[in-house]
Design a binder for these strands. Structure first.
Lengths: 193, 193
DNA sequence: CGGATCGTTGATCAACTTCAACGGTCGTGG
DNA sequence: CCACGACCGTTGAAGTTGATCAACGATCCG
């Protein structure tokens, strides 16, 4: 169950066997069925979750009832409503499974304790968060700079796995465009070739 | 020079006098004149900078020569091309001063050493990065969900200081709209009242 | 098998951009 | 210290991009 987890952690920091054991005990395993919620808007996000297997998404719903993707998370990614998890306020996002999933979850008190007891995990998360910031910055630039077609093309270049694995309407929402527009863009691109 | 710096750090973690002294020694003070570059695209971002005084911005320039704001940083904020700073690759962003500024800068080797020697600083940055992620997520949602007018209104509500202190054309770029559109939006809003 | 959901296509519409022009202000060099 | 140029915000008119509304076939799942 922890195979992928430790592989990923060890890419950034090296844990002793004792530290690994300590870390393990803070996590709760959980299985999730396709379409099942991990978190619903309004609830407090009690867990930060590592995806061992499967595929999840986080998204918010606007006044008009439209969904806007925040993030996709598959094997090796973390997911939560970061703000709700850290502040204890109710969540603005929903999280659910696009494919059946297996998770490793940790609560905030355990997270705080773990990062204090195992400073390498503090470091791991600092690095993780850094990389997340970089990724979000890029997405933001992309969103503010490029046309719908350019955004899609860049995504297809940099994250081809995402295009392959995730339904088209969710990709559209992730890019901040309508499914119709994305469909037309894809048609347009194949015509060009 | 370090007044604001330690005020800000102490809001998140408590440092002993000895730790403060240790931390101080890793930083280099620097003054910057209005319009002066701290970083130019193509150079490596050697420093992570804390703003003691003044106002800076980071932005990138697209193929058509248009600027896109990434971030503004005034008293109490940090600024860098995060990716370049951490990876040593050349920077995609420019950073310059909108107002005369005083900075405290740290190099990556010193940053790594400091966070290892003073784990509280590791924690400080982990928290800082967390908050940054939350802010970037919100901006991204805002960018993908709302109309130009809604984006501006929300910004004016949540960051009124920003509206007051930063030239309108830069705010437009920050919101991913043209200066003309922002001008019309503002006119429109005052008409409504 | 039947209903729901998804991707596609067409037609129309609204939001925002682009291009152009003008007045005001700021700061810089003579 | 003044004058000039550069830059900024504003306004107007026209153009473009992407959203919206609607309809249809295909596929998936129960």
């Amino acid at each position: 169950m922890f195979n992928l987890f430790f592989t990923h952690v060890q890419e950034k920091v090296l844990l002793s066997t004792a530290e690994q054991e300590l870390v393990k005990n803070y996590f709760i395993p959980k299985k999730l069925r396709k379409k099942q919620y991990l978190l619903q808007e309004g609830d407090v996000c009690k867990y930060l979750s590592f995806v061992e297997k499967g595929l999840l998404r986080s998204y918010n719903v606007d006044d008009k009832g439209l969904e806007h993707m925040i993030q996709f998370a598959w094997e090796g990614w973390w997911i939560a409503d970061t703000y709700s998890f850290l502040s204890g306020e109710s969540a603005a996002y929903n999280i659910d499974a696009i494919e059946d999933a297996e998770l490793l979850m940790i609560t905030l008190p355990h997270f705080e304790e773990m990062t204090l007891k195992v400073p390498k995990m503090e470091r791991y998360f600092r690095i993780l968060f850094q990389n997340n910031i970089i990724a979000k910055e890029r997405r933001l630039i992309s969103s503010n700079t490029y046309s719908a077609e350019e955004k899609y093309t860049k995504l297809a270049e940099t994250q081809p796995q995402l295009i392959q694995r995730i339904p088209q309407n969710l990709i559209a929402s992730y890019l901040g465009i309508t499914p119709e527009t994305l469909s037309r863009i894809r048609k347009n691109i194949t015509l060009k070739k």
